[in-house]
């Protein structure tokens, strides 16, 4: 019983984290058809910037609780600056090229970001855990959990709800959906697809940085955190169905719960569980759990 509770809580916390870090990836893929490996770099940039910002914030002796707003601010600023830089500076030159070529372009950007981080922050790990410890812990069925971790569930829910609302209930969101559905027709109908691309990429970048910024207090950041993350996030969005926000949420839950079950019940399988689940899902639902309808080319 205790194990069951632990699996559920651990699983949902981990899923929330996965959802935050992979929502941007799936959004960018949905709209732009770009599998953005640089997402890992944006995540790392968000994490590093957050650590630096928190460090000087607490050194300055400002009210501790407002540090959570600082994390949000970091995500917005990093996403805005680097999202614009990458989209305007690099990707814009590539539109119309093969999807796989663009994947490699983002991989190149990712490598450059990795070394740039090393040049700026050095190779040593950094941590700034003040916001993590601030909220203390609670007991659930006698097990101690960190309140901050539980807060991630709320953050993920709010992020998901805002994305859903923005896409389905606002005019701009509907334009976005139109572009997702058919880029050429949207352009023909007068949608400024390039602007939509820029805005999408920046939002996606902010989500990546948001993941990094809110992960930073829980752990220690090193230059390689981006690499570790990116395959995980890929697995989540592929399981859910690329380009679907609901899919990313379900994918995150599937991966999170399976991983937690494996850790508690069968620790030896932890390394396989994500890829095992991914292979299984793809074997039965070749396009992921939430597939998009694609017209056949004749």
């Amino acid at each position: 019983m205790l194990t069951l509770v632990a699996i559920l809580v651990d699983g949902v916390i981990y899923s929330s984290w996965l959802f935050i870090v992979s929502a941007g990836l799936t959004l960018i893929f949905g709209v732009m058809k770009i599998l953005n490996i640089a997402h890992g770099g944006l995540y790392a940039l968000g994490a590093y910037t957050a650590v630096s910002a928190i460090g000087s914030y607490f050194a300055g002796g400002y009210p501790p609780l407002a540090s959570y707003a600082l994390l949000l601010l970091v995500a917005v600023v990093v996403g805005l600056v680097f999202g614009l830089l990458i989209e305007r500076g690099v990707l814009r030159l590539m539109y119309g090229r093969d999807e796989i070529v663009i994947v490699l372009v983002t991989y190149g950007v990712f490598l450059i970001i990795e070394d740039a981080i090393k040049v700026i922050w050095g190779a040593s790990p950094y941590y700034a855990s003040q916001p993590y410890g601030l909220l203390g812990r609670v007991q659930i069925s006698g097990l101690a959990f960190s309140v901050y971790d539980l807060g991630l569930i709320a953050l993920a829910s709010v992020t998901g709800a805002l994305l859903w609302w923005g896409l389905n209930r606002t005019r701009n969101g509907k334009l976005l959906l139109a572009v997702i559905h058919d880029r050429e027709i949207s352009a023909a109908m007068g949608v400024d697809v390039r602007r939509v691309f820029t805005v999408t990429f920046v939002i996606g970048a902010m989500l990546g940085a948001l993941g990094g910024a809110f992960t930073a207090p829980t752990t220690s950041v090193v230059p390689s955190i981006g690499v570790e993350l990116i395959v995980l996030a890929f697995a989540v969005v592929v399981i859910g169905g690329l380009g679907s926000i609901e899919g990313a949420a379900i994918g995150a839950l599937v991966v999170g719960i399976s991983r937690a079950s494996s850790v508690h019940l069968l620790p030896e399988a932890e390394l396989f569980v994500i890829y095992g689940v991914m292979s299984l899902v793809l074997a039965f639902r070749p396009q992921g759990l939430f597939r998009r309808v694609v017209a056949r080319k004749i």
């Binding site: 632990a6 809580v9 651990d10 937690a260 620790p267």
Partner: peptide, 15 residues
């Protein structure tokens, strides 16, 4: 045995 570089150890800590 979590993966090298995993970074998040919530489930392991619960175990």
């Amino acid at each position: 045995f979590p993966k090298l570089g995993a970074g998040q150890y919530g489930a392991e800590i619960s175990a």
